[in-house]
Nucleic acid binder design. Structure first.
Lengths: 219, 219
DNA sequence: CGCCGACTTGACATTAATCAAATGTAGTGG
DNA sequence: CCACTACATTTGATTAATGTCAAGTCGGCG
């Protein structure tokens, strides 16, 4: 991130506290007071909003290196639940202390703004996905996105384990669990991927990307 | 916002440049280099993303007092087009200069973070809307949201002019223009609102809110 | 007055949801 | 190691919501 050693020491001082969250454990709940941001060190999370009518919407899946809780800054309370998809570990970052540091480390501030902005951009892509794409395209886009995020972390872009249930995927993509199942099967039949429970291997990334872009359909 | 007079003077200095944008005028385009944020002084804008496949998704409608361009911070180029829905006026805010001020005016920084965070929250609500709600619920939520934003600006929450076309509304809500037309008509028949072209009057806000919350359906 | 774009309305098609059942998988205790 | 249970996933048949296509109407503007 371009921070000096001294900067890093100061940063380390405030993000000392680590916290483990077991699978299905709740990192924070909607409505809870906002005091910390959370940097994921290990594992995966999902965030979801709950409607008054009982409707639930998964708003994102987060993995190591990503930041949780930025939506809470505006109102001092959280707007969604954050739940661990597997045994995970986060760093608590007390936001008031982080704000103090911003005054001393401009590079840190700039980095923080980039992360907030990135989250805005990510959500806009999801809006495009939910508002404009058909089912097939949504799932293709989702899988390609997951792959590229693993790749950015030094893992394989085409072979990974899904950490979330079909239900979570469906909810995130605005589809039912049955649709997800059928689509995965269709992709499998067309030789686009291998899937066994949560083990996923993308065999034809080119076609899958074309599906995601909407420049091709399958079957 | 809790700024001192001196703070305000400094802020004024950097946001001096005003810019008029005529109806249908483009404030910025996807891919254009990011240099300024824009504070809307007057008028309305829409932002939309464009897909490779030609698909377009309206990602938001912005009105006076709101900030445009925050999604561009992370990559130094804009991720969507911003277009004026009527003759409008904005303040250009050179972002590097704003960043300098952040070091001197903590209150300004805090306010900026709230605005970024608020945008994240807003987009999450749209994800809920697009992923979970049926057509009727979406339109009701949209109208209630518009009303409350006008109310927050000192205008009437139940009587206002739509600045965007049916097509824009439909695109934003992930529905076709025909569906919007039919839904507005259904609401009208049920005495929930009066609508004449773009002139909108909400007659039964209670029921409309119930529709938006999903605790009731209509017809 | 007449044209053009925006909107409305109607008939029909399609996508994905719903409902229902079957199958598979992981975990548990005998 | 093997039932046995609970839960997740798959598969099939049907339906409902919304999209698509095609006219038609309205309203503003030159």
């Amino acid at each position: 991130m371009g921070l000096t050693d001294v900067d890093m020491q100061q940063l380390d001082k405030i993000i000392g506290r680590r916290r483990k969250v077991a699978r299905d454990g709740i990192l924070y709940r909607m409505g809870a007071p906002f005091t910390n941001l959370f940097a994921i060190r290990l594992g995966h999370f999902k965030t979801y909003q709950i409607n008054r009518g009982g409707g639930q919407q998964v708003t994102g899946f987060q993995m190591a290196g990503e930041l949780l809780g930025m939506d809470a800054i505006s109102t001092d309370h959280h707007h969604c639940d954050a739940v661990a998809l597997e045994d995970s570990e986060v760093c608590e970052i007390p936001f008031p202390r982080l704000e103090e540091l911003f005054g001393h480390i401009p590079t840190l501030l700039r980095h923080f703004h980039r992360m907030m902005s990135q989250e805005i951009t990510r959500e806009q892509s999801v809006m495009l996905l939910l508002g404009n794409m058909r089912a097939e395209q949504r799932l293709a886009a989702f899988l390609i996105n997951l792959g590229s995020r693993y790749e950015a972390r030094g893992y394989c872009a085409t072979s990974f384990q899904l950490r979330m249930s079909r239900e979570d995927i469906g909810n995130y993509l605005g589809l039912t669990i049955e649709s997800i199942s059928r689509l995965l099967n269709k992709f499998k039949k067309n030789g686009l991927l291998k899937v066994n429970n949560r083990e996923m291997e993308i065999l034809d990334a080119v076609t899958l990307k074309a599906l995601a872009a909407g420049t091709r359909t399958c079957d």
